[in-house]
Design a protein around this nucleic acid. Structure first.
Lengths: 192, 192
DNA sequence: AAAATAATGTGACGTAGATCAAAATTATTT
DNA sequence: AAATAATTTTGATCTACGTCACATTATTTT
């Protein structure tokens, strides 16, 4: 693995310190993969073998309800991790789909390898605990914003928090993340 | 500390194995506290010193919006952990309140002690990683249900998932957790 | 570059759930 | 047991947002 491993290394180094040799060893537990726009990383009903660390591109994770309506749970960009964690951690069938909004490169980590590395390196376990803590906080804030603010406020908050993502995403996709229809989102920003 | 430590021990032992002596040592990093109904564990705007492991009782964590409306994020019962994690992990001011719905006993763990124990015992770090993973999945599912289902479906799901909690909670509190007004919740279950 | 497909915008109308107000019930305190 | 406070219910409206339908504009594909 080449240059792309730098992105992963950087992320590790923000939280823990690793010997170069250890990093190489750790990296050996990841596999590199490329996906084209519209390809799936995770499909509803299937097993989920990997957690994906994005090197480049953009993906969405979404749930399809009984009426066929899509609800977006998460996006991921360069440097973010994504999978269906319930399925991944607990060997269940995926309930979400994850597909590419753009051509995407990832490093894949199986749950077995993750557990192996966590056992072998206390530091890696520490790293993942920290990551999960962060994710927790983000998810909590999302719940808060769904409970306590209206469509417009959520839209404006999103623009502030993720200005570049907002530009990159088709509006109907963003609408679905915000929990409104594309029509409503459109009406939010044309006027005022 | 006496008998109540059993509840904590049990939880540890579901995930990791610890020597009795180590457990005693770990327990030494917790402090025991009692709260009466209506007392606060965490107050908005204050620092958050502890993560709380409930021994008995029941608490709610809620956010108060600009109109003074309360939005419940989480409950905790015997055997659950609760705090304002963003404030706790990252030394910020609390944005939520956590108060007691019943008289409540807790074991308190400071973030410093948590980090200390995680460093000293790889197993403890493992324990908390696992816990946080679980919490993640639960939060994700909550988001999913807020995005994709209506008030009635959310209410019915709650009844199925937490039948005993549903009985224990005042309806207006439950309503706030579900993201509806008490009037709406009342109308959901009187008819059909 | 034409054809096909996907994304966005706009109008007309419907509805789940909010809001406001007041009564009825239940729990707590003195 | 009376008094006070908290919780729950019910009715009458209101409104943010959804739905449906169709027009317009981009983006892909051939």
């Amino acid at each position: 693995m080449f240059d792309m491993s730098e992105i992963l290394k950087e992320q590790f180094q923000k939280i823990i310190t690793i010997e170069p040799a250890d990093f190489e060893y750790i990296l050996g537990h990841f596999t590199y993969k490329k996906f084209k726009k519209h390809q799936f990383l995770v499909q509803e009903g299937q097993q989920v073998t990997f957690d994906y660390f994005l090197i480049s591109g953009c993906v969405k994770s979404y749930y399809t309800d009984e009426n066929g309506k899509m609800h977006i749970l998460l996006f991921a960009l360069r440097d973010w991790w994504i999978t269906d964690y319930e399925a991944y951690y607990y060997q269940k069938r995926a309930i979400v789909n994850i597909d590419c909004l753009e051509d995407t490169e990832v490093l894949c980590l199986s749950n077995d390898n993750r557990e192996k590395l966590c056992q072998e390196f206390h530091q890696v376990e520490h790293f993942f605990r920290r990551k999960t803590n962060r994710r927790n906080v983000a998810l909590q804030n999302r719940i808060l914003s769904l409970l306590s603010s209206n469509a417009k406020q959520r839209y404006e908050k999103f623009l502030l928090e993720y200005p570049s993502l907002a530009q990159r995403l088709p509006k109907h996709i963003l609408a679905s993340y915000l929990g409104v229809t594309r029509e409503t989102l459109s009406r939010l920003y044309v006027q005022k």
